[in-house]
Design a protein around this nucleic acid. Structure first.
Length: 196
DNA sequence: TAGGCCATCTGGTCCT
DNA sequence: AGGACCAGATGGCCTA
């Protein structure tokens, strides 16, 4: 719930100003100089002998333009950071509604997505089987999650899996949950990663 | 120490 | 023009 940013520890925030830059790192804004210029990549590949050549004496634009450019970049970095934090928050929220693994290990991002996918599918299967058992009554109108499961999975086919990736399951049994009633006894040792 | 996972930066592209 | 989104690159941390 409130662990939305739990995995965003600030261990990675201890930016050390490396002072290297391809462009120019001197235009650091005091507001977030902590987020600034973690540009190790440029430094990393800087050849000791061959100094990285600028494109010419005019490669560096005049100060004002350059500073404006730099500021835009910094703002973009900030937004991007925020965006990723939001994404991680959503991922955490997703983790919080998934059954917890016994060893309390935190699912990785990809595992979370796969697990959620499997879990939704399994729950949908449960509902479908339950509905069928109650007299083959069609899914109630307006049913949301069921709609796709009853249409796309009308014959217990695999859930719609838009993210095609190598080894992505084609058959339901590849999803870790073979029978829908298995959901009731959700297997605590289910390792989503292994299914792929 | 290699490999996996992650956060961040960055430049490109698309959209409003 | 500026923001959102995306993918590649990079370096840090952790674990087998």
């Amino acid at each position: 719930m409130d662990n939305v940013f739990s995995d965003v520890d600030c261990s990675s925030c201890d930016y050390s100003f490396t002072g290297t830059d391809d462009e120019d790192s001197r235009a650091s804004s005091p507001a977030h100089e902590h987020a600034l210029l973690q540009q190790p990549q440029q430094q990393e590949h800087e050849q000791p002998q061959k100094k990285k050549q600028r494109r010419g004496p005019r490669a560096r634009p005049d100060g004002a333009v350059h500073v404006a450019k730099k500021n835009r970049r910094l703002k973009a970095n900030d937004r991007e950071r925020n965006r990723m934090h939001n994404l991680n928050g959503a991922l955490d929220a997703l983790r919080s509604v998934l059954p917890a693994l016994p060893d309390d290990t935190k699912l990785t991002k990809i595992e979370t997505l796969r697990f959620a996918h499997n879990y939704i599918w399994a729950l949908s299967e449960t509902i479908r089987i339950h509905d069928r058992a109650r007299g083959a009554s069609p899914p109630s109108p307006g049913s949301d999650a069921r709609s796709w499961s009853s249409s796309a999975c009308s014959s217990a086919s695999s859930p719609p899996y838009s993210v095609s990736e190598p080894g992505s399951p084609e058959a339901p049994e590849d999803y870790g949950f073979v029978q829908a009633d298995v959901v009731y006894s959700y297997h605590p040792n289910f390792l989503p990663y292994d299914s792929y």
